[in-house]
Simulated scan of single mutants.
Amino acid sequence: MTAEPAAVLAEEQALELLSRGSLELEGRLVDASNTTLRAEITLDGLTRRCVYKPVRGERPLWDFPDGTLAGREISAFLVSQATGWGLVPPTVLRDGPLGTGMCQLWIDEPGDASSLIGFVPAYDIPEGWIAVANARDEDGDAYALAHADDPRLARLAVLDAVINNADRKGGHVLYAPDGRIHGVDHGVSFHVENKLRTVLWGWTGKPLPDEATEMLSRLVAELDGGLGSRLEEHLTLTEVQTARTRARRLLRRGKFPQPPQDWPAVPWPPV
């Protein structure tokens, strides 16, 4: 069966499809460190592709000993959903061909999509981009890791600060045909220690945009209520409490966070 052209699904419709649809595995994404499979999922004549990450295929991580990576992926979606920004594709925890795992809607990227993050010549940083780190290629030529000063990326940087994302690579940012961007691969998030590691440091120390301040005010209230309870199904109580603290601190300071001093600030490879 071939998936139909990927028209945009409403979130509720996508979650219903992911939760109840029939999964047919297509193959494995070999670049992933944990078992990551692409599948077709079908419900009532509607077919889409999805990413399926079975818990049994997760490699144990010494610094994330509790819960599952799948649970952290679900938690990232729940927080994204509460922001109202739609940054993480619809994601559910469900049974599949290889057991319980995370199932996330596949995002088709347009063939002519130009990345908003990458290495650029240090002497020719595109207008409207922000340099994050210096680098050199094999010939010794100077490059800069940089990203666009784009409000969509700024939203993602705020989300990462709240969930303490330890692995925001450029390749973990997807560009949908409808112009939205999505962040994926959040299995190493929500640690109780500051492990924020990202390529989106361009706004370090700058004031948060007004929309982020308004969102954080709502998010703090939701973390104190129903959202916090839902997160406790996937994270430890301490991890949920620490996420609340991070959101409150971010709101109180009103600025983008500073890079950690005792933890590599940029993931490797960055893109």
Score class of each variant (00 low, 15 high):
53 K>A: 03
54 P>C: 04
54 P>S: 02
55 V>E: 05
56 R>Q: 02
57 G>D: 03
58 E>L: 02
62 W>D: 13
64 F>S: 13
65 P>M: 07
67 G>K: 08
72 R>A: 03
73 E>N: 15
75 S>A: 15
76 A>K: 00
81 Q>Y: 04
87 L>E: 07
87 L>H: 02
87 L>M: 11
89 P>F: 12
92 V>H: 10
96 G>W: 06
98 L>K: 13
98 L>W: 08
99 G>L: 13
100 T>Y: 05
100 T>E: 14
103 C>H: 00
105 L>Y: 10
107 I>F: 08
108 D>I: 05
109 E>R: 12
109 E>C: 11
111 G>D: 11
111 G>A: 07
119 F>K: 01
121 P>I: 03
122 A>G: 06
123 Y>S: 15
124 D>F: 09
124 D>H: 14
124 D>M: 13
124 D>W: 07
125 I>V: 14
126 P>G: 11
127 E>D: 09
129 W>K: 04
129 W>A: 08
130 I>V: 14
132 V>P: 15
134 N>E: 15
138 E>T: 10
139 D>K: 15
141 D>M: 13
144 A>P: 01
146 A>S: 06
147 H>V: 00
149 D>T: 08
152 R>L: 05
152 R>S: 11
153 L>W: 02
157 A>M: 09
161 A>R: 00
163 I>M: 01
164 N>M: 04
165 N>G: 00
166 A>G: 11
168 R>Q: 01
168 R>E: 10
169 K>W: 05
169 K>A: 12
169 K>T: 05
170 G>L: 09
171 G>Q: 05
171 G>E: 09
171 G>T: 12
173 V>F: 06
174 L>A: 10
175 Y>E: 09
176 A>N: 03
177 P>V: 04
178 D>K: 02
179 G>E: 06
180 R>F: 06
180 R>M: 08
184 V>L: 03
184 V>W: 01
185 D>R: 01
